[in-house]
Design a protein around this nucleic acid. Sequence first.
DNA 1: CTTGACCTTGACGTTGGTGTCAAGGTCTAT
DNA 2: ATAGACCTTGACACCAACGTCAAGGTCAAG
Lengths: 126, 126
Amino acid sequence: MRIGELARRAGVSPRALRYYEQQGLISARRSSNGYREYGEADLRLVSEIRSLLAVGFTLDDARPFVACLRAGHDSGGSCPESVAVYRRKLAEIDDEIRTLLIRRAEVAAQFTTACPGCVLRKAGES
Amino acid sequence: MRIGELARRAGVSPRALRYYEQQGLISARRSSNGYREYGEADLRLVSEIRSLLAVGFTLDDARPFVACLRAGHDSGGSCPESVAVYRRKLAEIDDEIRTLLIRRAEVAAQFTTACPGCVLRKAGES
DNA sequence: CTTGACCTTGACGTTGGTGTCAAGGTCTAT
DNA sequence: ATAGACCTTGACACCAACGTCAAGGTCAAG
């Protein structure tokens, strides 16, 4: 299939697919007229990439998963490198959550300090 | 005082101060040689901006706070517009926290689906 | 007079994952 | 032959808050 069909089937833009290729995540053989030609396995790769991006992974994070699938594993996340990325990502998310909780408290503190009493009243009164 | 001194006292770079000016947050009169000249009130404004940026506000968010101080209020957060920003920011942070919690769960779910058993073992085993 | 610390404006680089032209080649159907 | 649906590469735009040069003006001290 050509890039347009893969894009439709995977729910991405052709532009995105070219970008993934440029980043070395996917590849395509070329037909005689220069068009990219993809197989079913590529749809699989792109789907994996998409589901990872959807949960906040970067394309760089997705690399080991793609490699894992290409290596013949039936799951992109079953290789040691992917597992390492999973663990790192979970740690990163936990970190961000902690940071946000702290920040929320800091903002609330600044708020009450700057305008004691404002916090409990509705907007517009003060 | 000139830009360098204000920068040192506020703990920012001269570049940042010029940027704040370009964004309309602060202003400076010019001495005869073209140098920016600041007063103590400006240090106050910059400090306000900094403490807001430090907790994740954008420069745009900081605008009402600066305006509030310029209007003579002793706290940048005591004006209705600032209060509205505080509320909006708290809501945004809460949203981000919720999003991250959901994402954490999704990643963990993908992880266990992709590699059941990996989660509990140490890295490198599989 | 010259060093050197300060100041000026202007403009490009950073980060990620595309969107969106531009300018053109290819192929199918009518 | 021509419309139009597809493809190609290349390159700028985006968002935020600056960092970092470039190329030059200003001023006090030695």
